[in-house]
Design a protein around this nucleic acid. Structure first.
Lengths: 175, 175
DNA sequence: GCAAATTGGTTGCAGGCGCAACCACTCTCC
DNA sequence: GGAGAGTGGTTGCGCCTGCAACCAATTTGC
């Protein structure tokens, strides 16, 4: 397991360098991935519920009756994903759909009794998990984390729009 | 687009509550997703390089010649993913493989000349992107972010192990 | 009042990904 | 030195997911 003597040539030719381990997008991706994976085991192992389904349940838990559209905007899920998650939850008897007579394109979605029960069981576990996660942080750090995440998130959406519209950083206005 | 008058019943029946938008795992997932997507456009649109391939390139850029195994551990990628990413990069002529006569199971992987060129072009753009991203943060906040991410990441891995081994939070040792 | 555009939602398809099985090679230990 | 365990790497398979095309219902504009 040592591997001493293995090459791992310390990158000679390139002047430019970028340390992946210190690269914010990478760090965020790894952290989010680890967290999601761990958390999903909590409800997947016990209830056979996948991540998108959990998101839907959670949205329905807080907003009550809504439409698929609303679920999508609140949870930032693609409408395809919402559609399939709701369908899966309906098959499992955790949500119910009812028609909206005012607009027959959309349908109302609600947690069923079983759905509410599951929500009531998963929620504390999820909260515990989040608590355990931030448990390593001081209360100040938690505050920092909150503001930083908010700022980054806003700015990232902004940047995403810019990039989508061709205003890429470093693509034309650079030296 | 207003939708006033739509139901969105404020969740009556459940006593438990969990606000998805404030839930750390969710926030991390959304942020990481936004960032990854934006960033990937930088190298995907211009070079047709996918995220896993970029990771491999970046690792090779900093470590020089390595094996697939090493790439995996440095980039936290599943060996399947490394295998496919390297194969794709080889097809594109961006990396080269050479045999290790000391151990014929593994093979050395290096950036080709073109690979180094691409690395040299993408790296500054990626760095710019990261700079733009943290541009909203004060230098103190950047420091905070760094320590917080490190702590969270360590702790998350820890938690992941615990959960994988059945020591779930809230599953037995609670109240 | 009706054709065209828009919107909520579903689905076929193709690409990406992890798991598990597998192959080739190496190491261990008798 | 040879059988069995272990390791680096690849691949078949099935699941998940986003895109684009689509359907039905609604809204817009003439």
């Amino acid at each position: 397991m040592t591997g001493q003597g293995k090459p791992e040539t310390p990158a000679s030719a390139s002047d430019v360098q970028l340390n992946l381990q210190e690269f914010l997008p990478y760090r965020l991706a790894v952290l989010a991935e680890t967290v999601s994976q761990s958390l999903s085991q909590l409800y997947n192992a016990r209830y056979g519920i996948a991540i998108p389904e959990w998101r839907v349940i959670s949205i329905l838990g807080q907003y009550g009756t809504t439409t698929a559209k609303q679920i999508g905007t609140h949870s930032r899920m693609h409408k395809t994903m919402v559609s399939r998650a709701v369908a899966a939850l309906e098959r499992k008897g955790l949500v119910e759909r009812s028609a909206n007579s005012d607009d027959m394109r959309e349908a109302f979605v609600t947690l069923s009794a079983r759905g509410r029960a599951v929500y009531g069981e998963i929620t504390p576990a999820a909260a515990d998990f989040a608590d355990a996660l931030v448990g390593v942080l001081s209360s100040e750090e938690r505050g920092h984390l909150d503001t930083i995440l908010t700022k980054l998130n806003d700015h990232a959406s902004q940047l995403a729009d810019d990039i989508a519209n061709g205003r890429l950083p470093g693509s034309g206005d650079r030296n």
